[in-house]
Amino acid sequence: MTISREFHPYRSAFIQERMMVMSELAKSEKASKLQKKKYDASAIFDNIKNHDEFEKAVVENNLFPMIFAILKDIKEETLFPCVIFDGNEAWIGKDAAGNYKYFTGQPFDEAVAYSIFDLLLCFPQVQGKGYTQQRQFVRDELINLLNVSYGDVDWERKEKEKYIENVRILALFKNQDFQAKYPNLFKKIKSYVDVLESMLIHGQKFIDIGKRSDKNNAIFSMYASQSKVSSARFSSAVKRFRELGLLFAEKRKVTYFDKRTRSKCLTETTLYSFPLYSESFFNEIERILKK
């Protein structure tokens, strides 16, 4: 049955409404009903240049039948039994702003309108601290599910691959053959390998297109406490890594929230970034150290 807007008032979903969906999805049979699937929507998003444009296009297109197998045959503006809340009726259509939502509510009662982001944020596998990081996780999930690629995505993928490769190569330093191949380099950093490893693990959590170094690398801040070593040892390690070219560092002014004054403030801090490690990269460092 096609809906009548006159008899279906609605309100947008916020944290309370998302918590209700989370509670329902915690029930195994509900989560399995909303099984996600991959869909090649690259043609729909072929002119996207950045994350903002992608997120805008996501809500302007009806992605619900593309993402959720159970909704693939649902027509727009047509009532069907809600797959989340028992006893509710639901429909998929545009809200007053022209964005696609999943509407759900009791018959002839006020409905709640969920965007595709709202629903995906409710799944238990979502990672991140706070709404911003969790939304970024969902955005990345959508990019993968929809087979989308654009400038911001390509840069982030390249950075993620770099960190994975650097961690893999650093693990080889525990191998005697590797130590024999780069004896001078190993001698220089053997006391600080754990610090370098912790910095790589920490840094890959903060890959953000809006935070890039002058060399176009992902940048992050880190302190000795986060590496679980003393300030003196952390400073010595960073100095050694920079000397060898294993780590870049630059001073920048960043904003932070001052709880005492309850306002945003500026402070100068050191931000770090990494080059891509490789055999040729280490060969060059070893050659220079031999001199």
Rank of each mutant, 00 (worst) to 15 (best):
I3A: 01
R5L: 12
R5F: 08
A13I: 03
Q16I: 12
S23R: 09
E24S: 06
L25R: 04
S32L: 07
K33C: 09
L34S: 00
K37E: 13
I44V: 12
F45E: 07
K49W: 04
N50V: 01
H51P: 01
V58F: 03
N62A: 07
F64A: 04
I70H: 02
K72A: 05
K72D: 06
D73N: 13
I74C: 04
T78C: 03
P81R: 12
P81L: 06
C82F: 07
C82I: 09
N88I: 03
I92E: 02
K94Y: 05
D95E: 02
D95L: 03
A97D: 00
G98N: 05
N99L: 07
A113W: 00
L121R: 14
Q127L: 10
G128S: 08
F137Q: 10
L142C: 08
L146N: 07
N147G: 13
G151F: 08
V153Q: 10
W155E: 09
E161N: 15
E165H: 13
I169N: 05
F173K: 00
D177Y: 11
D194H: 15
D194R: 13
L196Q: 04
E197W: 13
M199W: 14
I207Y: 15
D208K: 15
N217K: 15
M222H: 12
S235P: 02
R240M: 15
T255L: 10
R260Q: 05
S263M: 03
Y277R: 07
